[in-house]
Design a protein around this nucleic acid. Structure first.
Lengths: 228, 228
DNA sequence: ACTAACAATATTGTCGACAATTGCACTTGA
DNA sequence: TCAAGTGCAATTGTCGACAATATTGTTAGT
């Protein structure tokens, strides 16, 4: 009874937080379900101490909500929270694009153009099937965020908010969106950054995210995912 | 040996996180100092279990940094981090002002005008001495944030980022700023909101925060506070 | 005198057990 | 039959002790 895939970090608590985060994002732990400490502890073969620390971390990531003396519960995705989250993304990633426009190095920009070409080639070869962004270095948005150079912004977007955002991406019919349109928008944003047009880069990024938000909303309402 | 002022929340861990957060913001626990678990546990009269959970929370709030097998350390304020933080604030509170402009109720707006009048009267009576914003309901920014109606944004700004922001406010010569100028800017922002001019409200809020950032930067460089 | 290896000490990480609180099932009364 | 009250079971919160790691101090060798 050992689900530990052993990512083998320095501490059990960190490992657990990572594993649990992934399990929640993937849906292996159902939305809205209660987190049973004894059960999970047995399942992962650890004591409740580090498990509780991991749960506190998850609460900070917004993946679970905790109530004193009652316990933790996995969040339940719903349209309103998604819209709220994406409004924040709009503001934050807009700022990231603005900053990137004024500080991004030439070779970084080249690298991003190469990435977009790669995405383009993928779409051409796979009849517009959605490119699976496994959260790695192939994610255009992550690259822009890192290029901002703002460490606080990077931490917030890539560590604290990213899990929830991935959850929305994954659990909704993201396929509804038009990948070619998204790619065009990415290219326009990158052009603005390459030209050091911060205002324009911010504007385009905000529109891009706003549009994704609208699409997600429609998808959620159709799939009745957010129906509680 | 009991420093517990007993805010008496439901759980020790919550109390501790609150107490430690305040102690760090006030400077009672020095910047850059190491957090000794045995020492703090004895000081507050609790065991290390809930204390560690509190420290994990503080890490989420960005008040301490933790390293595996070594321990936690209080953050060290410095100019670059302040600028990064305020860039985020600029984006987020700008969005909050925009949202407030489209959703704030009439009576809420009236209440905010009354608050600004109160601030004005205070300045008149106390030869421009800085109004002490104890983080309560008298804080203009907090009111705008809450008026945005975006629960995610509210949580992020008032729970996760607020401690660090208060820390910068407190530990720098905030008095350098011109309170009457700030008040004028507040009023302009509120006017824009009252007129439902979202674009303008966002622009003004961003300028307002950007200006505060510049002032803080100068103050920090002069007080040599950020010289580690 | 300085460096390197080693021993001793202190601190962090983890565990199992106990206390406090909650939730549930059952009983009792109208 | 339903409502309220009571007692039991399960879960969360807290504690003290042990294991693992890091730090300090000491000794030996060059």
């Amino acid at each position: 009874m050992n689900n530990l895939v052993s990512i083998k970090s320095a501490t059990l608590s960190e490992d657990l937080a990572q594993q649990l985060s992934n399990a929640i994002v993937k849906g292996e732990i159902a939305q809205g379900s209660k987190i049973s400490e004894p059960e999970l502890a047995k399942q992962y073969g650890v004591s409740r101490g580090p498990l509780r620390e991991a749960i506190v971390k998850l609460e900070g990531l917004g993946l679970v909500t905790r109530t004193a003396n009652i316990g933790a519960r996995v969040i339940q995705l719903n349209t309103q929270d998604m819209l709220d989250t994406f409004s924040m993304r709009e503001a934050l990633e807009g700022m990231a694009a603005r900053l990137a426009a004024s500080s991004m190095a030439r070779h970084e920009i080249e690298g991003l153009y190469a990435l977009l070409d790669k995405h383009q080639a993928y779409l051409d070869d796979n009849q517009d099937e959605h490119y699976v962004q496994q959260g790695g270095n192939d994610d255009f948005h992550l690259r822009i965020i890192h290029a901002s150079g703002n460490t606080k912004l990077i931490r917030l977007l890539t560590e604290e908010l990213y899990a929830v955002i991935r959850m929305y991406r994954r659990h909704t019919a993201d396929q509804r969106s038009d990948p070619r349109q998204a790619l065009r928008e990415h290219r326009a944003i990158l052009d603005a950054i390459a030209n050091h047009e911060g205002d324009l880069a911010e504007l385009l990024m905000r529109r891009h995210i706003s549009r994704a938000s609208h699409l997600l909303k429609q998808a959620m309402e159709h799939t009745a995912l957010a129906s509680q």
